[in-house]
């Protein structure tokens, strides 16, 4: 087996005082759907720009498809597909004109690549003559993906393809990626939505330029080091405030329909932790609060690792 399609070794990129990418080391495997998960400002876009040869790292090195992103950029550009976070097609050109343009830049034609892009392009074809600016958000995304695929890249970088997109379009987009993945194409994607991590083969959690954890989503979730409880009550806000004073609270925060309470006692039995928290809440008058153990998610791990890394976040 040849070298992994993405090998990042201790890459640093600074903007003035801020290390946008701060000693990042990572590897993406062949045929993997790999996700960089993190909020705005985590360094995802800067890292993607380095990997797609659009930005030079200050130090460290990165190789994509066996080529150095700094010294071998021209050969590399022909082999990668890149969909930037901001809509970057020509708004005044039609769907077909945009596609023709990107095909011609890479010395090919839409006709020649038709079979390759058909699974996505077929959903757009009826809008061939529509200006890109007039497409809906979901359609713009699909067109951008077609343009990134038209030259048959060997690896695809998608920077926040689902940001600001509604839950339904997000789901559709991930189903599209899952289908593309079956062809063996390596796909590297970034997202601020923690719940999308489960769609990836492996993920790297990023925050403030650093990687907090890299693993399969289930393994990341399982790495949560405390007993986690779900607390349900109709009076969620007052229960939240009350639990801040519970002696065994390591951390408590709203999580979907419940509150998540991480017990600060390492290795405590989950049933015991639940009954003690329940007793505490009953004493405080919250007799209808229900407490039960709950499996940690990627987001719980993210919250826990984030708090450990930066106690009070300095103004960046």
């Amino acid at each position: 087996m040849s070298e992994a399609p993405v090998v990042v070794d201790d890459v640093v990129k600074r903007y003035g005082e801020v290390a946008a990418v701060d000693h990042v080391t990572a590897e993406v495997r062949h045929g993997e759907l790999f996700g960089f998960i993190g909020p705005d400002g985590a360094g995802k876009t800067t890292l993607f720009r380095i990997l797609t040869t659009l930005l030079l790292p200050d130090s460290g090195s990165a190789r994509v498809l066996g080529r150095d992103v700094v010294t071998d950029l021209w050969a590399l550009r022909r082999e990668i597909g890149y969909m930037p976070g901001r809509f970057s097609l020509y708004p005044d050109l039609s769907v077909r004109e945009n596609l023709d343009f990107f095909a011609s830049v890479f010395g090919t034609t839409v006709a020649r690549e038709y079979e390759h892009i058909a699974p996505i392009y077929s959903q757009l074809e009826e809008f061939n003559d529509r200006r890109a600016a007039a497409l809906s958000g979901g359609m713009k995304q699909k067109l951008a993906l077609c343009c990134a695929l038209v030259h048959r890249p060997n690896i695809l970088f998608l920077d926040e393809p689902t940001t600001g997109v509604d839950a339904v379009s997000r789901r559709e987009f991930w189903e599209l990626l899952a289908r593309m993945r079956t062809s063996g194409l390596t796909i590297v994607v970034s997202t601020p939505y923690m719940d999308e991590a489960n769609r990836c083969d492996r993920v790297a959690l990023m925050q403030n330029g650093r990687i907090l954890a890299t693993d399969a989503p289930a393994a990341v979730a399982a790495s949560f080091e405390r007993t986690l409880l779900a607390v349900r009550s109709p009076d969620r806000y007052r229960v939240l405030l009350a639990l801040r004073d519970y002696p065994h609270t390591q951390r408590v925060y709203p999580f979907g329909e419940s509150l998540h309470l991480a017990d600060d006692r390492a290795g405590i039995d989950a049933a015991r932790a639940s009954s003690e928290a329940t007793a505490f809440l009953h004493d405080k008058g919250f007799t209808d609060a229900r407490v039960e153990p709950t499996p940690p998610t990627i987001e719980d791990v993210f919250i826990s690792r984030m708090s450990a890394v930066n106690a009070p976040v300095a103004a960046a």
Binding site: G38, P39, D40, T163, G164, P192, Y237, Y253, I303, M306
Partner: peptide, 24 residues
Amino acid sequence: DEPTSGVDPITRRQFWELIYEAAH
């Protein structure tokens, strides 16, 4: 209008506590 878009998971929750405070 989408006040927490792109905000990290901890700050997102702090933001919601401010919402609860205002509502209370």
